[in-house]
Design a protein around this nucleic acid. Structure first.
Lengths: 136, 136
DNA sequence: TAATAAATCGTAATCATTCTTATATAGGAG
DNA sequence: CTCCTATATAAGAATGATTACGATTTATTA
């Protein structure tokens, strides 16, 4: 994912390209790690006086829905990050201190599905948690 | 994990063996799937008038801490299940309709760790989601 | 430029979970 | 068996994240 693509996705799905959305997307592209809704709010509050968190939350879900952001639950709170550029299927190591990630290209799904005949598989999650090199 | 073991773990760690704890543990052993705190509360409320949800929550975290229960976040809510008898490291397919699980004995961690030199790995999660045979 | 559908604000409401304080109880010491 | 003390519990308030809502504003396009 990149900024242009993301803005285009909004338009293509009948959504408006507002300054706040552009700023949110630019922020995610720049920071490139998992952050909370609160962190997004803090960042944008500087530029937009009286910014409502309803706006942040609504846009976060919209972005996830459109495939602009990916979402995961860390320590009881939703975290979001800009979808990777990498087109190949992969998973993440996630630093629980700073939220930075590292792509992991191993995936056990092919092996797992052999044992799931008759089951309807709708998704899977493989995440490795710890401290990144910078946070150790 | 089994009921006897669980009760013994309480005693060994200086906790009291109350009727409510015994009932919670028995319930988890019997139902054998992922359930929410609310479902535990509903079950025990029949037997204990004026049961506080604080009691449920406190005991749930205690049980997780002692390794009696395992915990995961499904659809924005914590779910708990009795730890499997199986001693071998494994993961789960989880039915998002009924909470039932199926053990999966593939794990990508060995392969993943090769790419995580210099990182401190503290945990990992591999879960497959969908509908079980009974819920399809 | 006007019309309109979508976005935003401000705030209230909700939902799961945790905290607090007073009371009750399990389990060990005597 | 009885008392003592640390632990557990009840009741409800408090918290923190998230969602909902009616009124207002704004981006788009015709």
């Amino acid at each position: 994912m990149n900024i242009k693509q993301a803005m285009q996705l909004l338009k293509d799905n009948g959504h408006k390209q507002t300054d706040k959305r552009a700023d949110m997307i630019a922020f995610f592209a720049r920071i490139d790690k998992y952050i909370t809704a609160k962190e997004v709010l803090e960042e944008l509050k500087n530029r937009y006086d009286g910014l409502s968190f309803d706006t942040i939350y609504r846009n976060l879900s919209l972005f996830v829905e459109l495939g602009i952001l990916e979402e995961t639950e860390l320590i009881g709170e939703k975290h979001f990050r800009f979808c990777c550029q990498t087109s190949k299927h992969h998973h993440h190591f996630i630093c629980l201190v700073c939220g930075k990630t590292k792509e992991l290209f191993v995936c056990p799904m092919i092996d797992a599905e052999v044992n799931l005949q008759g089951y309807e598989v709708t998704g899977h999650k493989f995440e490795v948690y710890g401290k990144c090199v910078g946070c150790c």
